[in-house]
């Protein structure tokens, strides 16, 4: 398999040996294969049970990982893509539209990275401009108007840091989305499917429920950016990834996400269908749980959810100015 990550190499070597033996089809091979397969299973179990934060980051960014449009295709029917922010342009780094999820009609939105070089450029590597965030909010408010739940898939290195983005109000667009999501009278379910890159991720991520795929990461700054600030060396990203607590189990512990959606062994890139099946089950459960709640309840619950997030203690009041 091309695009193999370093820690996947030993697994691939075993797989290749098994494939070679299968082709050989000798008595010796038939003897050897079950033994190797058992070893492979054990090694795989061990490797994926002890992934570091940096290895998870690599999985989250894996070039073959299913992207937003892949999940759209695997999860939803009758998709109609809707374009544009009605103000300035259409940002291909965010896709969204109308869809059917089982019996439910839903609005779906997500950042879209590109697969090949051409698509990557067209989609700006999944880094949205203000137009993308404004399109996302427009679609959320469309869903609100017609009482349909919203599902967002978060997968972005971050909002694009560029001249045009600043001129057209990147910060304002993200801020407005946060306030807009706080007011949404329909269920909003956000799923971090790959990379949750900071404000550019949160800008579509203020869900009543926030889900995260098992090997996805979500952070305030990229490990490379953090390492550059702390140690003046982006190469220390693996250390930064560890200290920032960016993995799904970390975020569950910190109260930032509600549920971890399991991935197939080896990661979503090895089995798209399997990844989609787990996500489908999780979404069905969450949508079912939120169905029938009033607008007021949904807004109040979302408020309380984010109001609670944070880590501080209240000490005795110190003397003024102390």
């Amino acid at each position: 398999m091309p695009d193999a990550l370093d820690f996947e190499q030993p697994l691939l070597e075993l797989e290749n040996r098994i494939t070679a033996l299968q082709a050989e089809d000798s008595p010796r091979a038939r003897d050897e294969i079950p033994r190797l397969e058992e070893r492979l299973a054990r090694l795989r179990q061990r490797t994926y049970a002890s992934l570091t934060a940096w290895q998870r980051t690599q999985l989250a960014r894996h070039p073959r990982r299913p992207h937003t449009r892949d999940f759209f295709r695997l999860l939803f029917e009758d998709f109609v893509e809707l374009h544009g922010d009605r103000l300035y342009g259409d940002d291909a780094a965010i896709v969204g539209g109308l869809a059917r999820f089982g019996e439910r009609r839903v609005v779906v939105i997500g950042q879209q990275k590109g697969r090949d070089t051409r698509e990557k450029l067209a989609r700006n590597f999944g880094m949205p401009h203000p137009e993308g965030y404004r399109k996302a909010l427009r679609l959320m408010q469309l869903a609100d108007k017609f009482a349909k739940p919203v599902i967002t898939l978060v997968d972005t290195p971050g909002a694009y840091p560029g001249i045009g983005a600043e001129e057209r109000g990147q910060a304002e667009a993200i801020a407005r989305n946060l306030r807009g999501m706080a007011a949404l009278g329909v269920p909003l379910i956000a799923v971090v499917t790959g990379e949750g890159g900071s404000g550019g991720a949160l800008a579509i991520g203020m869900g009543n429920r926030v889900l995260m795929l098992e090997y996805a990461v979500y952070s305030v700054i990229s490990p490379e950016g953090c390492a550059a600030i702390l140690w003046g060396d982006a190469g220390k990203a693996p250390e930064a990834a560890e200290s920032m607590k960016i993995t799904a189990p970390d975020l569950l512990r910190l109260g930032v996400i509600d549920t971890i959606v399991p991935e197939p062994l080896g990661g979503a890139h090895r089995d798209w269908e399997g990844a989609a099946r787990h996500l489908r089950e999780a979404l069905r459960a969450e949508l079912g749980a939120l169905a029938g709640r009033s607008r007021e309840t949904l807004v109040a619950e979302r408020y309380d959810k984010f109001r609670r997030i944070g880590a501080f203690e209240e000490t005795a009041m110190p003397a003024p100015g102390a």
Binding site: I174, A175, L178, R179, M181, A182, S198, G199, L202, M206, Y218, S219, V220, M244, K245, I246, L251, L254, V256, R302, Y303, F306, R307, I309, G310, A311
Partner: peptide, 14 residues
């Protein structure tokens, strides 16, 4: 404070 800092954006905007 990592991701918890990010979430303060949501809290204050809400």
């Amino acid at each position: 404070e990592g991701i918890l800092s990010l979430m303060q954006m949501a809290k204050t905007s809400a």
